[in-house]
Simulated scan of single mutants.
Amino acid sequence: MVEPAGQHSIAFEGIGTHWEISTPAALSAALRAGLRERVEAFDGDWSRFRRDSLVGAMARAPGSYRFPAEADALGRLYRRLYDISGGAMTPLVGSSLEQLGYDPAYSLQRRGSASPAPAWDDVLGWSGRSITAKSPVVLDIGAAGKGMLVDLLAAELESAGVQSYCLDASGDLLVRGTEPLAVGLEHPYNRAQAIGVVPVHNQALCASAANRRAWGDGLHHVLDGTTGQPVRTVVATWALANTAMLADALATALFFMPGSTLEKDFDFSWLTVFSDGGAAYSPGFAGTLFT
C-alpha cells in the first residue's frame, strides 16, 4: 500500500498476514491495543492451524460450537456461493488442503491423491452463530475470512470515531473517507511488476492469486471442492465491493465462475486473469490494464 500524504500509520502481524492501518490522526494506545486483540481473538476462533481454536476443536470432535456474531453473515455468504458454484467453492476444503500438504505443520508434502471436499449437508449445519459438525470436519474460511476480519477492524475504528482510514491486510484493502488510492495490480508471475492500476475509494479491493500460496508440482491453495484439485484455468482475480468480506469471497469465487454469472447475484466489479494469458473484466471495473 502507498500511504496517502499526511497520514499516520501502524503496522503489525496477525493471522499470518502483515497489517497496515493509515489514518489522518494517530490512533490512541488503547485503540491500537484493541485492534491487535481483535485479530488475536479472531485467530483463536477461526484458525485451522491452531489446536486451541474453535475450528481446531471441530476437527477433533463432532458437536455444536458457538462462534462469535460474525459467523452468521459468513455462513450465509458461504452457503450462497456454495450453491451457486455447485459445491466448487466451499468452507469444507480444509481436509483437501491438508491432503495436498497445506496442513497445520506447513509440511507441504502430499499425503496422497487429491480428495473432494465432503458435501455440506452431509457433515455441517450452520445456523447463525451455531456451527454443528456431524463428524470431525476441518473448516477453512480462507476464501472470505481475511476480508471479514478487515471489516471487523474497520468497525472497531468507526466505533472509536475514526471515519477516514486505509486498512491494508497484505493487499486486501478497505478505504474509507480518504482520497482515492491508486493500487497496483500485481503480475501473477512476477511480484515485482504490475499489470495495471485501479483507484480504490470508499470500498474494498481484494485479490486472489494462485502464486500466493503455492508449493510442489503446481499445487496452490485455491481448490475446487468437487475434485480437491487446484484450479488451473485462472491465475489471478480482483474484486471491488462495498465490504472486504464480500470482495474477498468473490475474488475466490471468480476462480470457479465467470464474473458475469456472479454479477447476477452480487453488486461488485471484477477482473480475472486466465492461465492462457487472457483477461476478462466487468464493464464497471475502474482499473487500467497495461499493454
Results as ranks from 00 to 15, higher is better:
residue 52 D to I: 00
residue 47 S to K: 09
residue 72 D to Q: 04
residue 59 A to V: 04
residue 66 R to A: 11
residue 60 R to Q: 14
residue 37 E to K: 13
residue 49 F to I: 10
residue 50 R to G: 02
residue 72 D to I: 00
residue 44 G to L: 14
residue 53 S to G: 14
residue 46 W to C: 13
residue 47 S to Q: 12
residue 50 R to Y: 08
residue 78 Y to H: 14
residue 55 V to W: 05
residue 48 R to T: 02
residue 56 G to K: 10
residue 57 A to K: 15
residue 72 D to K: 06
residue 74 L to F: 13
residue 44 G to Y: 08
residue 61 A to K: 13
residue 59 A to H: 06
residue 47 S to G: 06
residue 51 R to W: 09
residue 63 G to V: 07
residue 51 R to Q: 13
residue 39 V to A: 02
residue 72 D to V: 04
residue 33 A to P: 00
residue 55 V to G: 03
residue 66 R to Y: 15
residue 40 E to Q: 11
residue 68 P to T: 00
residue 31 L to D: 02
residue 66 R to P: 03
residue 74 L to Y: 13
residue 45 D to A: 15
residue 54 L to R: 08
residue 42 F to L: 00
residue 32 R to F: 08
residue 61 A to F: 10
residue 64 S to M: 06
residue 72 D to W: 11
residue 74 L to D: 08
residue 31 L to F: 04
residue 48 R to C: 01
residue 36 R to P: 10
residue 77 L to V: 09
residue 39 V to L: 03
residue 63 G to M: 07
residue 55 V to I: 15
residue 66 R to H: 14
residue 44 G to I: 15
residue 59 A to C: 05
residue 71 A to Q: 08
residue 51 R to H: 14
residue 38 R to K: 10
residue 64 S to E: 13
residue 53 S to K: 15
residue 48 R to S: 02
residue 54 L to S: 09
residue 33 A to D: 02
residue 59 A to N: 07
residue 55 V to P: 01
residue 41 A to K: 03
residue 34 G to S: 12
residue 73 A to T: 06
residue 54 L to W: 05
residue 49 F to H: 03
residue 64 S to K: 09
residue 43 D to Y: 13
residue 36 R to L: 14
residue 54 L to D: 00
residue 56 G to Q: 03
residue 54 L to I: 10
residue 51 R to T: 15
residue 72 D to A: 13
residue 73 A to V: 09
residue 65 Y to K: 09
residue 40 E to P: 08
residue 50 R to P: 03
residue 35 L to N: 02
residue 77 L to Q: 03
residue 60 R to S: 09
residue 49 F to D: 05
residue 56 G to C: 12
residue 75 G to W: 08
residue 71 A to R: 05
residue 45 D to V: 15
residue 32 R to W: 05
residue 36 R to N: 02
